[in-house]
Design a protein around this nucleic acid. Structure first.
Lengths: 128, 128
DNA sequence: CAGCATCCATGACGATACTG
DNA sequence: CAGTATCGTCATGGATGCTG
């Protein structure tokens, strides 16, 4: 596995890093959607992240790309297309988020909400 | 296990709930510290969460207690003491956070920081 | 299409002082 | 001891309009 477990303890300073990455409003959802659907273009993401603004989407894409979580690829098509996807690191992150998502979906307060969920709003929580 | 896996998919609406809980600056650290040390009193937490303000600690304790993540217990001592701890639900949450912590601690950018870490800043990532 | 620039509202957080 | 009250600051994110 990837986790270099030199011990069973980690330093407090790791926590800030986690919050910086996934504490952002759309980060977990964005990562999960890219895990579910594979690579997507800006406007495809804009459509799936209901309620996000272009500027916010732009910012989060820029940040997560800069952190090596996302890949940004320009295709050779004419006209060129730009696609975003999970990097290897991003896939690891997504996998490590799955227990958290499963925990959340098992909570009562969530299960009530989930009953009204449309099929197209369901996201896979299987490992990639 | 607790996770009621009716399917391998979860609804988008679960994500907001996660961000509300663990997106807060001190939430993950607080949960991990209570997992590590067991029940603690306000000023003990205040000492361990270096840099937090009393008002912020007060707020996060109130919120996580309200969500059933933390327990708040008044002892019968004289004078009475108030101790905070993880509820059953909080322990589940903590366990589901462990893969994320392990992932973060395996990242290069983190490992550099971690070299300067004091022993007392190490937190266990074993299941409860 | 794939954003970026700008402005604005909200609220999270920190500092400090105070209380029963 | 275990907080609450108040205040100020800053960052986040939404709305909108513009661009190559």
């Amino acid at each position: 596995m990837n986790t270099s477990l030199k011990s069973d303890k980690i330093c407090l300073c790791a926590f800030d890093g986690i919050i910086d990455i996934i504490g952002r409003k759309w980060a977990i959802l964005l990562i999960s959607i890219l895990g579910e659907y594979g690579d997507l273009r800006f406007n495809q993401l804009y459509g799936k992240l209901e309620g996000i603004s272009p500027s916010t989407l732009s910012k989060i894409l820029y940040e997560l790309s800069g952190r090596g979580i996302l890949t940004r690829t320009v295709t050779q098509d004419k006209p060129a297309k730009i696609v975003y996807g999970l990097s290897g690191r991003g896939k690891e992150l997504r996998n490590s988020l799955i227990p958290l998502l499963n925990w959340m979906s098992g909570q009562d307060e969530f299960e009530k909400m989930a009953e009204t969920c449309r099929p197209e709003d369901l996201i896979s929580v299987k490992n990639l």
